[in-house]
Simulated assay, not measured.
Amino acid sequence: MNIYDISKKAGVSIATVSRVMNGNARVSEKTRQKILDIIAENDYTPNAFARGLGLNTMQTIGLLCADSSDQFFSRAVYYLERALRANHYDAILSCTGPDYDTRTEYLKRLLAKKVDAVILIGSSFIEAVPERNRYIIEAAAEVPIIILNGYLKAPNVYCSLCDDQEIIQQAASACLEHGRQELLFLYRADSYSGRRKLEGFKEAFAAASLPLDSRRIVLFNGSIPETKEKLLSLASEGLTFDTVIAGDDELAIGALKYAKAMNFDIPSQFAIIGYNNSQLGICCEPELTSIDNQLEFCCNNAVAALMSVLDGKPAPGKTMLSANILQRGTTDFF
Rank of each mutant, 00 (worst) to 15 (best):
D5E: 13
I6D: 00
K8C: 05
S13F: 09
S18T: 09
R19V: 06
A25D: 08
K30I: 06
R32E: 08
L36H: 05
A40T: 09
D43P: 00
N47C: 15
N47P: 14
A48C: 06
A48N: 12
L53R: 00
D67K: 07
S68K: 10
S69E: 12
F72Y: 13
S94D: 05
K108N: 12
A112F: 11
K113I: 03
V115Q: 02
S124M: 08
P130Q: 13
R132C: 06
Y135C: 06
I137G: 06
E138Y: 03
E142L: 12
P155W: 08
V157I: 08
C159P: 01
E166Q: 08
I168H: 01
Q170A: 07
Q170V: 03
L176A: 14
H178K: 13
G194N: 09
R196F: 04
A208Y: 04
D213H: 15
S223Y: 13
L231E: 00
L232H: 11
L234F: 11
E237Y: 05
T240G: 14
T240C: 15
I245N: 00
A246G: 03
L251R: 00
L251T: 03
N263H: 13
P267L: 04
G274H: 01
Y275W: 14
N276K: 10
N276D: 14
N277P: 08
L280R: 02
N301F: 07
N301C: 11
A302G: 07
A304K: 11
D311R: 08
K313T: 10
K313W: 09
G317W: 00
K318C: 15
S322F: 11
N324W: 06
Q327C: 14
